[in-house]
Design a protein around this nucleic acid. Structure first.
Length: 745
DNA sequence: GGGGGTAAGTTG
DNA sequence: AACTTACCCCCT
């Protein structure tokens, strides 16, 4: 019986079947194979093999060539991929494309040869490069069965300068002293990447090197590229901790980031001793570097992230199965890393919103890896300053290790009674103390730029984005108004377009520029730094202990910690809570806990400016017994989530309907909501549709609705009407949205 | 009748 | 995702 091979390509499509040529060995599951695709070839992964009838075989195109004899993706991962595809309602190929960092886009040497006796227009009697044929001809010959094809991975080559001849008498004249010097140096170092480099190193003009090459003493050659070095990070000492996680723990919360990691060390060492590797997942590059720095002096560590070059990732992937047990610290790109003896998965900062992939299948990587651990039947450890309610519910209270939380000093400044906006008199007073004592302070503003808006003081006019329902952010330094969503920029108008008043000024929330200006007013001659996406000042004087104030956005959380910060100011607490998401409070609390990481060795006074000093969240932050407060907070969240049927007690998917015309978006959203309600019946419910929080964005009007899966039936079936939708609006789905108002591109 | 743009359909 | 085909508008 002929064999059909199902091949998954890194495209947003399901797997496709190809016929295995009768003379070819059956490929193993998870191996890479090259298959014909449109008028060329593509590399995919073998996900299934099945016997088919001879008639069925006739309909299939032939597989071209296997690239591997061993699985490139572990067969255990294939079922996991399939499961992820179903739960995220996206094609399996799309999951593969977003999780596999290498291997499927290799450059290939593709050759063709005419079958014996075939009449073809070209001379294809021997293997020749496919570029001799036009794509149409290739397709035609394929269909007629006139050619055979073969491929191999193109070895990465680099062009180098090599010495060809030893210096001879002809070079030993005074006029050719430079050439002689260069050639002798080249023989000394054996090879160099360019003639220019030789000229630099031998300290001769480039023309001398050119002459050497012209006269055949040296020349360029393509040689196999050397293996790239794998990254290394400067070692760092972990703090000591009093409690360690054991086998019965499934989550760690509280403490500093480094303490949570330190509490895991005996567990990790135990895994390695048992011959098991551990996958340590991180949400961002800076945590990857920090984690690798801490671990590498204690145990064998490898890293994988988007910061590695293609060549580095390739080397990493190839060597991984042969390595001794190790700790792999990686971002989501390490999900499918072929660790043979994987014994545990650790998810650091498990609740981090950075784990939400912003495109493709929009996976939430924490959930995906919890699923992987279940598939592999290995333990999974969660760690975060404040566990996600989902995480806590999953592991259960009694499997949770609480580390003592850092002690905090908190002062709340009520902005409603203040006249000197955006700084309260309390903040000004402590800032003055910081200056007098030559200390360091960090002020966090809710946004970059000067202010949230520019408006007219005489009427109600506010500058708004022409593409979005948002006010334009005022950037004083560039004398510009810009939209932080769509990137629209314009110059500041001279007068109000509404009432022609010239009294235009900053309105609403103060950004880093505004705060910096106010601080400068109150603290003349004190060093002021800014740290946001627009302006990243060099903070090394502060690292060395010089005094100063940093005005920053949360971008500062990705900067190495500053020593002995004595004041931490949150200039507008309210914006954090203003987010229209059921996770807003939880995220705010987590941010508050993360702020302690800005200066872990100090105990800075945290000053919070707010218009709502009675907000219940502040009570949790003020509580003396932090551990108890956190437990109480999470219990409350879970209780409400249960009562109102929110995750983890129901699965939620967002459906976004967008169109250029607002009415179209609204009509199609209503239509889709009705279709969904009829389809879902009592298996779940449909909330909405309602206009998206920012209804017009990037020129599109969006409506959104939420589908709740109350019986864990899976969105694969519940969202069927969405899958089948072919109307005039653009529809996007986000399963498990982490920010319910966020626009889906 | 064709250049230039977008929308819709197909890929094994 | 990448690519082809269909279709529309505008201009010569």
């Amino acid at each position: 019986m002929p064999t059909a091979v199902s091949v998954l390509l890194p495209l947003p499509l399901p797997a496709f079947s190809y016929l295995l040529p009768f003379e070819q060995e059956k490929p193993v599951l998870g191996a890479r194979v090259v298959v014909p695709w449109q008028a060329g070839v593509r590399t995919g992964i073998v996900v299934n093999l099945e016997e088919v009838s001879a008639t069925k075989a006739l309909e299939l195109k032939e597989l071209i060539y296997p690239l591997d004899t061993e699985p490139f993706i572990l067969p255990k991962h294939l079922a996991f991929l399939d499961n992820l595809a179903k739960s995220s309602v996206s094609p399996p190929g799309q999951i593969l494309a977003s999780l596999l960092p290498i291997g499927l886009n290799e450059s290939l040497v593709h050759e063709v040869k005419a079958v014996a006796g075939a009449k073809v227009e070209h001379d294809l009697s021997d293997w020749s490069g496919v570029q001799a044929l036009s794509p149409n001809q290739l397709d035609f010959y394929r269909r007629q069965g006139l050619i055979r094809e073969r491929v191999r991975i193109e070895e990465p080559k680099v062009r180098v300068l090599l010495p060809f001849k030893k210096p001879d008498e002809a070079l030993k004249t005074k006029a050719k002293a430079n050439q002689l010097q260069a050639l002798e140096w080249l023989w000394e170092v054996e090879r160099l990447e360019s003639g220019a480099e030789l000229a630099r190193q031998a300290d001769v003009p480039e023309s001398s090197v050119r002459t050497l090459v012209k006269n055949g003493y040296a020349g360029y050659e393509d040689v196999p590229a050397p293996l790239p070095a794998l990254p290394n990070y400067p070692p760092k000492q972990l703090p000591s901790v009093a409690i360690y996680a054991g086998e019965n723990h499934k989550a760690i919360t509280g403490g500093y980031r480094a303490e949570r990691l330190a509490s895991l060390i005996p567990l990790l060492q135990g895994d390695l001793k048992k011959g098991k590797s551990v996958l340590v997942l991180v949400p961002e590059q800076f945590i990857l570097e920090e984690t690798a720095s801490y671990l590498q002096s204690l145990m064998p560590v490898q890293v994988l992230s988007g910061d590695l070059s293609d060549a580095q990732r390739k080397r990493f992937w190839q060597e991984l199965p042969d390595n001794e047990p190790l700790i792999l610290v990686g971002t989501y790109l390490a999900t499918l890393a072929p660790l043979g003896q994987l014994g545990r998965i650790v998810i650091l900062e498990e609740a981090s919103s950075s784990y939400k992939l912003q495109s493709g299948p929009r996976l939430f990587i924490s959930s995906a890896l919890r699923l992987l651990a279940e598939h592999l039947d290995i333990p999974c450890m969660l760690a975060d300053s404040l566990l996600s309610p989902e995480g806590l519910n999953h592991v259960g209270e009694k499997h949770c290790l609480y580390l003592p939380s850092p002690e905090r000093r908190l002062h709340i400044a009520d902005l409603s009674e203040q006249s000197n906006w955006p700084l309260s008199s309390d903040l000004i007073q402590v800032l003055k103390q910081v200056k007098e004592r030559g200390r360091r302070a960090v002020l966090l503003a809710p946004r970059r730029g000067f202010s949230a808006a520019l408006g007219c003081s005489d009427c109600t006019w506010l500058a708004e984005c022409p593409n979005c329902d948002l006010s334009l952010r005022y950037h004083q330094d560039k004398r510009q108004l810009s939209c932080h969503q769509c990137g629209f920029n314009m110059a500041i108008p001279l007068e109000c377009p509404n009432c022609q008043s010239v009294d235009l000024g900053a309105m609403r929330g103060a950004g880093t520029q505004w705060i910096a200006r106010e601080v400068a007013k109150h603290l003349p001659d004190f060093p002021i730094y800014r740290y946001d996406a627009d302006e990243r000042h060099d903070l090394s004087p502060l690292l060395e202990g010089e005094p100063g104030v940093v005005i920053a956005t949360t971008a500062l959380l990705r900067h190495p910690p500053l020593p002995d910060v004595s004041l931490l100011g949150l200039t507008l607490f309210d914006t954090l809570l203003g987010v229209s998401d059921f996770r807003a409070e939880e995220e705010t609390l987590r941010l508050w806990l993360q702020l302690a990481e800005l200066s872990p060795n100090a105990r800075p006074l945290t000053l919070i400016q707010t218009f709502q000093p009675q907000h219940p969240l502040l009570d949790f932050m003020r509580a003396k017994d932090a551990e108890k407060a956190m437990k109480f907070f999470l219990e409350g969240v879970l209780e409400r989530r249960k009562r109102f049927h929110y995750p983890p007690f129901a699965d939620v998917a967002k459906v976004q309907i967008s169109a250029k015309q607002e009415l179209t978006a609204q009509r199609e959203a209503n239509w889709l909501a009705t279709a969904l309600k009829l389809h879902i019946k009592d298996k779940g419910d449909v909330l909405g549709p309602s206009a998206a929080p920012v209804t017009k964005l990037k020129g599109l009007y969006s409506y959104q609705l939420f589908v709740r899966d109350l019986g864990h039936k899976g969105f694969e079936t519940l969202l069927q009407p969405v899958q089948a939708y072919h109307g005039s609006a653009r529809v996007r789905v986000d399963v498990d949205p982490r920010d319910i108002g966020k626009f889906l591109d």
